[in-house]
Design a protein around this nucleic acid. Structure first.
Lengths: 221, 221
DNA sequence: AATTAATATTTTGTATACAATAATCCGGTG
DNA sequence: CACCGGATTATTGTATACAAAATATTAATT
């Protein structure tokens, strides 16, 4: 993505994440252009890109609106994620190199050290380590297409803020899952890795449900 | 998508599908603008959209190039499709209405009639019926997000032409799978539907491999 | 003849101007 | 007072012009 477009994407994405635009609200190109300090052309590019990430939806001749997320939507996303990431974990178990495994193990240890240090939790360390762990696992799975699909799914506003609501026990369990994943992958046990990853994502869903208005999240319709 | 952009997308997509641009070749915006009879602006929009469908890939400041597909890529796509469509079939078994089931059954019957008519095969009838069947099944699954992901996966050049290479037996088996899917879904048996759909897609992969240079399609690396 | 540097050309990226479409406002009419 | 129709404004869509970057070409040097 080119310079001005990239700048616009980052600014607009951040503004949506920060809640500066309410869900459903109409984003005007000229306004955004002014805010971003670029012309309408790269702003339009940026909006197309953000539509690809499901941050906004574009209605031809009417404009672009920031996406609204129902409980149903969020449930769908977590379920799909659990399936796709679990598949990735199975592939990783079959194909990971020693290097991949080392990298993942190191991230587990770093987070573990932080959690057992006695001091308060450092969310930044967790977030960075968590990101690196999952990225490495996806890389180990060796399917660019799968990575792309997953990345698109999780690059969404709702999921982007999930991790913020983890309490200490959640972080602990999350990292135990990571440790078990490393073990399963080392053992080249695809089925094991698959099932741990499924638990890992569904547990995250549970945290989400606990934190954000649980009553809205009825998956049965 | 707006008028001129839509026009450009259709024209460029068709040209790629028809092989008028070799894989890897550099698409120049001005040329395309002339061919499509629009200006560069909607052409650029169109190229972004086609990049989303993986018809082309865009390298910033260098241009857009028509995608090249390795056997590995194609294998990935079919495997992902089998997983996602199978998941959709499971959901459909849980949630399909009588109306959905009727529609699917009707499409099965239409194709069956065509196949057993004694006349030669009418591929158009098969393609239309097949499309309708799968669309209905996805609708029955009731997950817009899943539908979107699958649609993106199969809207790709390689997969877009697969059905063309079906022989009579392939069509027969394909329709038998459809019939069995209707049965499984009627019985609300998600596991059954899941497994039939998996077979259905993997069989399609097999046809693909048989038809397009089988030696390139070694999935083991 | 091969290599490099400088220059010219091509191509993409961005800004702006104009056209088409949709949304808003306002006055008239039942 | 509600409702419809037309004019006005706002907003998106498209074309063009210009800037920046990359590629190709040429000339000079060894």
């Amino acid at each position: 993505m080119s310079k001005a477009t990239n700048k616009a994407v980052k600014i607009i994405r951040k503004m949506i994440l920060d809640g500066e635009f309410a869900p459903g609200s109409h984003l005007k190109e000229e306004e955004l252009a002014e805010v971003c300090g670029v012309s309408r052309t790269p702003v339009r590019d940026a909006l197309r890109a953000l539509a690809g990430e499901d941050y906004v939806r574009i209605i031809p001749n009417h404009g672009t609106f920031v996406s609204e997320w129902s409980g149903q939507d969020i449930a769908e996303i977590f379920l799909l994620r659990s399936m796709l990431e679990a598949y990735g974990a199975r592939l990783a178990a079959e194909k990971a190199t020693e290097e991949h495994i080392d990298t993942m193990r190191k991230e587990v240890e770093r987070i573990d050290k932080m959690l057992s240090s006695g001091k308060g939790v450092d969310l930044d360390i967790f977030l960075a380590g968590n990101k690196k762990f999952h990225e490495t696992l996806r890389e180990a799975a060796g399917s660019d297409r799968l990575t792309k699909i997953i990345t698109r799914l999780i690059a969404q506003p709702v999921v982007a803020r999930t991790a913020m609501s983890y309490d200490r026990d959640d972080l602990q369990r999350s990292n135990e899952h990571h440790a078990e994943l490393v073990e399963a992958i080392s053992a080249k046990d695809g089925e094991w890795a698959h099932s741990v990853m499924t638990s890992h994502i569904l547990a995250a869903f549970q945290v989400y449900k606990r934190h954000y208005s649980p009553d809205q999240l009825n998956t049965s319709d």
